[in-house]
Design a protein around this nucleic acid. Structure first.
Lengths: 194, 194
DNA sequence: CCAAAGCTGTCACTCGGTGTCAGAATAGAC
DNA sequence: GTCTATTCTGACACCGAGTGACAGCTTTGG
């Protein structure tokens, strides 16, 4: 059984729900839109909305968020003797390449930028995978990084990521995210053995 | 009238409220403590709690948070031709020196570390002053920084700050924050004109 | 002493989020 | 095709964070 009907339906409903949510948020604002409203518009009840998303905020990040596993796995695939900062750059670059900058992506980022609660929740989600990445760097084969340096590396990487998003948003979605990422990673550098 | 009785009382109540709150949070957890509980313990009603703090979270940051004005002002006092990264280092270093690492400070940081909602809210607050700092760097006399670089600088500075807090927490409050800050700022560098 | 301004408790309300339950739909075994 | 265990759903009740409105008390300044 490669793909049950049930899971397919579930994913479809989930996508539909996220779709409707972002649409409403973009039109009338995040705080001004109730969960009940979203659910009704998608033909469900409020209770069922929370069976698909843990919070109202999470309906927004579905399409644009990274998972810690992805980054850790990709990081493990890099050569062990490579400079950690360079490894991070390559991993995140590869991730950015996969994002196709649609109109919806732009609207989503605008929404996050304009809504403090969403910014907070995004940070909260990232904290999770930052911990994983930091741990992965910490006990990496080869040069043993102390916890402080590992944290510094991951924090700095997300700092670049945020600056890239902000600039991309400022450009109205026309700027090339990969190019910005490269610029960011070379302007800000975390060099070891200094 | 240098200091009215009214304002003095108000500040005292506010401090008392924050005190009680942190105490309860540390003992039984943030989510497990209701606002009503805090207010009652301080001899007030829930309604009055919200006349002193906009949210439940904000009762925690009262003593440990920076304001954007402080940083911007201190930044303006640095020599105009100084490297921005170095300026940030000095300003934040000065701020860290003023923090005396009491038991309460430690408890507060532990609490934030253990509570996702608090981490999110702190980030939200910092976003506010990051914008100000970034703007201040943007139209600084002398070298005109583009918005992207200015963002990168401020984001990277908070990245260092967060790594310092995490390490200090890991050490159980024994590590010297200023030393850590220096190490962080020299390990991670944002260099311009490259 | 008197009026304006500020602070307080009380009440009522909205909204995000959760626990529970009973019924409908579905998956897989026969 | 049928039966049973699992899953999904709406309905209902509930909690806690936050807000608006109002009435009464205290402080401030003249």
């Amino acid at each position: 059984m490669p793909e049950g009907l049930r899971e397919r339906t579930r994913r479809a409903v989930r996508a539909e729900l996220a779709d409707v949510a972002i649409d409403l948020f973009a039109r009338q604002g995040f705080e001004e839109t109730t969960v009940d409203e979203i659910a009704r518009a998608a033909g469900l009840t409020k209770r069922s909305f929370f069976r698909y998303f843990p919070t109202k905020e999470d309906a927004v990040f579905d399409s644009i968020d990274v998972t810690g596993e992805n980054v850790v796995a990709a990081l493990g695939a890099r050569p062990a003797e490579e400079d950690p900062w360079t490894s991070l750059q390559h991993v995140l670059r590869h991730w950015q390449e996969e994002i196709h900058a649609s109109e919806r992506t732009l609207a989503t980022h605008r929404l996050i930028e304009a809504t403090p609660a969403l910014g907070g929740r995004l940070h909260q989600r990232r904290t999770e995978w930052r911990r994983r990445v930091s741990d992965a760097l910490h006990d990496r084969p080869g040069a043993g990084l102390d916890a402080f340096t590992a944290d510094l590396l991951t924090n700095a990487a997300t700092a670049v990521l945020d600056a890239v998003s902000a600039e991309w948003l400022r450009s109205g979605g026309t700027a090339d995210r990969v190019t910005l990422l490269e610029r960011g990673f070379s302007l800000a550098r975390v060099r070891l053995g200094d």
